[in-house]
Structures are given as structure tokens and as C-alpha cells.
């Protein structure tokens, strides 16, 4: 297995507040990894740094051994934790937008998935429910052939049936050579699809482990372990 993401002594500071504090970790390719932590623990900060939306205060990030550049950006497919498409857009606009932006975007794959959900190219985003918007955005993001998918809270705020749909979409589009980094605090919903988990608290990595090892060591679900570790 080769190392896809490497963070060394990564720190992001806002004034006196550390959003990330000296984080060192590595993520291999071909894995589905859960980035788990309570609200405000630094999950989104880490994902935004990987996607070059914010720059670290200090420390280093490598993607496939190279520092962050436009080239590494092209290899990462990013699902933000909020809607990134304009409300005025039609589905067809959103598809064109992704096809223009990303050379690795597979238009027919996206179209197939949207057809199955009866989302029409002429539908406007403004008129969509929260769940449908989430699904649309996820379909666009998963229709790229990237090396790394960063999914920030893909299942937050949607109903259980939509969650199942989103998780199966992630699995069905998962290319075994790619890595998927999923940030969430809804652990019981995702833990069966994860290879590995990273627990993060107040900007520091508490633990990184394979899910099966964690279960064997504790005789408990990841959700249980999380509740113990992060007990308030």
C-alpha cells in the first residue's frame, strides 16, 4: 500500500485558538477512512487544508508525495459540508459546471444515477429538498475519477433512507485504488463501511486504527468506543 496523504506537524491557528494542533498522520490509498470527532474538533479544517481552501499556519501536507499544488487539487474530489452550487442553477447547469471544471468527470455516470432518482436536468436547485440537494452534490462528486475523495459530513441532516442511498452510492462508485475520507459524527451509520478511523479532538489526533482492530481490542462497536472516548 502506498501513502496517499501525509500530514506532518500540521497546525492551523486562528488568533490564539488552535483549530489543528501539530497533527501528523498518514492515509494509504485504497481505503475508506472515517474522520471522526465532535463538533469543532478540526475535521472540516483538515479537509479544507487538503483542498487548499485554507492554508496551514505551519507544517506540511503531501498528496502522493507531492506538496499541495494545482496538480494535487485535480486528484481530489471534494464534497463540502454545505451546498456549493448556485440556487439558480438547473441540474443540467451543475453537470456542465462539473464537466467544465474537472477532466476526470464522468458525465454518463452522473446522468445514470440522477435518472434512477428521477432528478431531471431541468430541475432547479432552488426547488429541491435538503436531501435531494445532498444527493445531487454527492452524485457529482462521486462521478469524478479521483484518487482521493474528501466527503465532509455527507449524511448530516438527511433522513435514514437518504443516508442508506448516500452510503450505497459511495460504495458503488468506490474505485479500489482510491481513498475516501469521510468526516462525520454519525458513526453508527458509517462504521460498517470503514476500513480505518481517525479520532480527532480539539485539533489533535487521539487515535488512528483499523476498525476491526478497534472492535477486537474493545469488544465494542466504534460508536461505543467513540462515546466513551468523547464522554462529556
Amino acid at each position: 500500500m502506498n501513502e496517499l496523504v501525509t500530514c506532518r506537524n500540521l497546525t492551523k491557528r486562528y488568533g490564539s485558538k488552535f483549530a489543528l494542533n501539530n497533527v501528523s498522520l498518514s492515509i494509504e490509498s485504497g481505503k475508506i477512512v472515517g474522520l471522526l470527532g465532535p463538533n469543532g474538533s478540526g475535521k472540516t479544517t483538515l479537509i479544507k487544508i487538503l483542498n487548499q481552501l485554507i492554508t496551514p499556519t505551519s507544517g506540511e501536507v503531501l498528496i502522493g508525495g507531492s506538496p499541495l499544488t494545482v496538480e494535487t487539487k485535480a486528484k481530489i474530489s471534494y464534497l463540502p459540508d454545505r451546498m456549493c452550487l448556485g440556487n439558480w442553477m438547473h441540474v443540467a447547469d451543475a453537470i456542465d459546471f462539473f464537466a467544465d471544471f474537472y477532466t476526470d468527470f464522468d458525465r454518463s455516470r452522473a446522468q445514470d444515477m440522477l435518472d434512477k432518482l428521477h432528478i431531471r436536468p431541468s430541475d432547479t436547485i432552488r426547488a429541491m429538498s435538503k436531501g435531494t440537494k445532498e444527493k445531487l452534490q454527492l452524485i457529482l462528486v462521486m462521478s469524478r475519477r479521483a484518487s482521493l475523495y474528501c466527503l465532509d459530513e455527507p449524511i448530516a441532516g438527511v433522513d435514514p433512507a437518504a443516508r442508506d442511498y448516500i452510503l450505497s452510492t459511495i460504495l458503488n462508485n468506490y474505485d479500489p485504488d482510491a481513498t475516501i475520507l469521510i468526516s462525520t459524527h454519525l458513526i453508527s451509520d458509517v462504521e460498517n463501511i470503514l476500513d480505518e478511523v481517525i479520532f480527532i479532538r480539539e485539533g489533535s489526533v487521539l487515535l488512528q486504527s483499523s476498525v476491526d482492530d478497534l472492535r477486537i481490542q474493545n469488544g465494542k462497536s466504534v460508536d461505543h468506543v467513540f462515546r466513551e472516548v468523547f464522554k462529556c
Binding site: 458503488n172 460498517n192 463501511i193
Partner: peptide, 10 residues
């Protein structure tokens, strides 16, 4: 994997 809703690696 899809039928069982688990990771293909598993």
C-alpha cells in the same frame, strides 16, 4: 459488498 452494504476491501 453492495448487497451487504460493506466496504469491498472487507
Amino acid at each position: 459488498a453492495s448487497e451487504a452494504s460493506v466496504n469491498p476491501n472487507t
